[in-house]
Design a protein around this nucleic acid. Structure first.
Lengths: 191, 191
DNA sequence: AGAAAATCTTGGTGCAGATCAACATTTTAT
DNA sequence: ATAAAATGTTGATCTGCACCAAGATTTTCT
């Protein structure tokens, strides 16, 4: 069980004192998932916080018969349905793997104990949550004001690597456009 | 300076011990703003956390020459640019009043001291932030999958009161649709 | 109260992008 | 290695909604 990536991310957010880090590190347990496996179902309460050691996952909602992809998580990032986990309320989203995934997870019981016991960890979690909020606000702005082409271009410049990593139909769903439109836009830019 | 509404909201989120509540209460200072006043400008770091005793405000971004309204704040809710405030990073949004507003505010210095000194308050802030994240995710889903009409109807059922409270052009901007379209949709439902 | 500014309504037009469909290509499973 | 399933491409059509514009109405300021 490798905590290397996690430690790196943790330090970049806000360095934790040794004692806190050790308490935190002790609470993670390894889990593996196959490709296309649904980890959490909408309506359930998220029981775990995940950290991705390898693989790609996506978080999405069902609205009628359409899927709306909220975000992707990758090797080296946290994963899970954050609001459902922290508030222990039913989730409105699904979490599934896109590739076979090697992850660490922490139960809510441990999480709750850690945050109550160590103010530094409580703060660390808050700052992580705010960072997530900040990113979501940024995307929100784009959804409100960008055309399909603008959203597409922004994706290309911000994270070109996802083109190879993630099936285009999910990227289209992430941008809120039709897969066919995504494919056509791709054609205009490749030349 | 009335802390009544604030206390009510605080208790509904997570009751604070008396001592913490008093420390918190001591940090708020009253401010008034006129109608249409810009409180925080994009690019600046948000210096204050606000609580609304009376009035309506909106948070928006400029994208080219278009405005995208991210959210409204009302009497009895917190206000301010949360991510910029908590991370003390430049904001990408503006905060302005829609009506003359009677608010309380707390400086970042006090906020930071309080959260470091009182773990209960740190936790209280975290849970508030997660709740905000949760609401934003819900809206995000709608932006990704709803048509103009669906977004409009959802607004009507969820918060019909805003129709009288907020100029329709801002509601349109909040939904990411054209003001003229909003007006036409309104015509179809009134009959 | 009256003038000025802001907002709302309504009709007409155009186009970005959804939808449909058939085929090509890539990926996965056995 | 091969079949089967999933994903991507491309063209043709159709439509929801943005855009424009002019007049009506409401709200704000002095």
């Amino acid at each position: 069980m490798s905590l290397e990536l996690l430690r790196k991310l943790a330090n970049s957010m806000m360095p934790l004192p040794n004692h806190e880090w050790e308490a935190l590190a002790a609470c993670w347990h390894p889990v593996q998932f196959k490709r296309k496996e649904v980890i959490t179902v909408a309506g359930e309460v998220e029981k775990y916080l995940y950290f991705v050691n390898a693989g790609v996952q996506r978080l999405f909602c069902l609205e009628g018969d359409k899927e709306a992809t909220l975000l992707f998580t990758y090797t080296g990032s946290f994963s899970g349905i954050m609001d459902s986990f922290q508030l222990q309320q039913p989730s409105s989203a699904y979490l599934e793997t896109l590739t076979a995934s090697d992850m660490l997870r922490m139960s809510y019981t441990d999480f709750d104990r850690l945050t109550l016991q160590y103010p530094t960890i409580e703060r660390w979690v808050r700052l992580g949550t705010v960072a997530a909020l900040s990113g979501l606000l940024e995307r929100h702005k784009e959804l409100l004001s960008f055309t399909a082409e603008q959203k597409f271009r922004k994706l290309l410049t911000r994270s070109p690597h996802v083109l190879q990593l993630i099936p285009h139909k999910y990227l289209a769903s992430y941008l809120g456009i039709d897969p066919a439109t995504f494919s056509k836009l791709l054609g205009t830019v490749k030349l």
